[in-house]
Simulated assay, not measured.
Amino acid sequence: MILVTGATGTVGSEVVRSLPAGAEVRVMARNPGRVTGAPEGTEVVWGDFGVEGSVVRALRGVREVFLLTVPGGGDDGAFLRVAREAGVRHVVKLSAAAVGDSGAVDLITRWQRRNEELLRESGMEWTLLRPRAFMSNTLSWAESVRAEGVVRALYGESANACVDPRDVAEVAVRALTEDGHGGRIHTLTGPEPLSAVRQTALLGEVLGRRLRFEELEPEQVRAAWGARYPAKFVEALLESAERGRAGSKVEVHGTVPALLGRPARAFRQWAESHLEAFGAA
Rank of each mutant, 00 (worst) to 15 (best):
V25N: 03
V25L: 05
V25E: 02
R26L: 10
R26W: 08
R26P: 08
V27Q: 03
V27G: 00
V27F: 05
M28G: 02
A29V: 01
A29E: 05
A29K: 02
A29I: 00
R30L: 12
R30K: 11
R30G: 11
P32S: 10
P32M: 08
R34I: 13
V35H: 07
T36F: 10
G37P: 13
G37T: 12
G37W: 09
A38F: 05
E43K: 13
V44C: 07
V44S: 08
V45Q: 11
V45N: 10
G47F: 10
D48A: 06
D48I: 01
G50E: 15
G50Q: 12
G50R: 13
V51C: 10
V51F: 11
E52R: 15
E52D: 15
E52N: 12
G53S: 09
G53Q: 11
G53V: 08
G53A: 09
S54F: 06
V55Q: 08
V55S: 09
V55I: 15
V56S: 00
V56N: 05
V56W: 00
V56C: 07
R57F: 06
A58I: 05
A58M: 07
L59A: 00
L59C: 06
R60V: 07
R60E: 13
G61D: 12
G61F: 09
G61Q: 09
V62I: 15
V62G: 07
R63L: 04
E64A: 12
E64T: 10
E64I: 07
V65A: 03
F66Y: 14
F66V: 07
L67Q: 12
L67E: 05
T69R: 11
V70A: 12
V70Q: 14
V70R: 14
P71D: 13
P71G: 12
G72W: 07
G72A: 09
G73F: 04
G73E: 01
D75M: 09
D75A: 09
D76P: 02
G77V: 09
G77R: 15
G77H: 11
G77W: 10
A78D: 13
A78Q: 15
A78Y: 12
A78N: 14
A78R: 15
F79P: 02
L80W: 01
L80R: 02
R81M: 08
R81Q: 08
R81V: 08
V82D: 05
V82S: 12
A83E: 01
A83P: 04
R84M: 00
E85A: 08
E85V: 01
A86F: 02
G87E: 05
G87M: 02
R89K: 05
R89H: 03
R89E: 14
R89Y: 05
R89D: 07
H90V: 04
H90E: 04
V91T: 04
V91K: 04
V91I: 06
